[in-house]
């Protein structure tokens, strides 16, 4: 029961974040790359002022799977690092996000190596 309720929250929050992106696409003609950057920065800023953590506690993956969650992770890492010292303050962000970036590069290269771009019919 608890899991079902949690999944509902995940679905709702994740869905709303994505629907908001769609709203931006419809009204501002922003391209995919720009939307990703803006959402990442929004997540980073919201975490820096201490708000995004509440969304993550409430909705779990609904807040961490969207790219704003990647920004959250970067900010959170930097904030935790800042407690330890200057070096950790500078590297904390990329340490926390290192897994994601590594995965993107490694999987990206591998899958690109073994696949071909297909032309579209519609």
């Amino acid at each position: 029961m608890e899991i079902v309720l949690m999944l509902l929250k995940v679905f709702a929050v994740g869905g709303v974040i994505c629907a908001f992106a769609q709203l931006l696409i419809n009204y501002t003609k922003l391209t995919a790359g720009k939307i990703l950057v803006y959402f990442l920065l929004a997540g980073a800023v919201l975490q820096a002022v201490g708000l995004y953590q509440y969304v993550v506690d409430f909705a779990g993956a609904g807040a961490t799977v969207p790219i704003s969650g990647f920004g959250y992770l970067l900010s959170k890492g930097a904030m935790e690092g800042a407690k330890k010292g200057l070096f950790e303050a500078l590297t904390g962000g990329i340490t926390a996000a290192g897994m994601g970036i590594t995965a993107a590069i490694v999987f990206g290269y591998l899958f690109a190596l073994f696949s071909k771009s297909r032309s579209k019919k519609n």
């Binding site: 696409i25 003609k29 995919a32 297909r118 032309s119 579209k120």
Partner: peptide, 20 residues
């Protein structure tokens, strides 16, 4: 050619974006 023009003027073919 659709695929060569798409890559020069727009996006990679496999990018999941919508066409207006």
């Amino acid at each position: 050619h659709f695929s060569s023009a798409e890559r020069q003027y727009r996006y990679p073919l496999e990018l999941g974006c919508t066409r207006p």
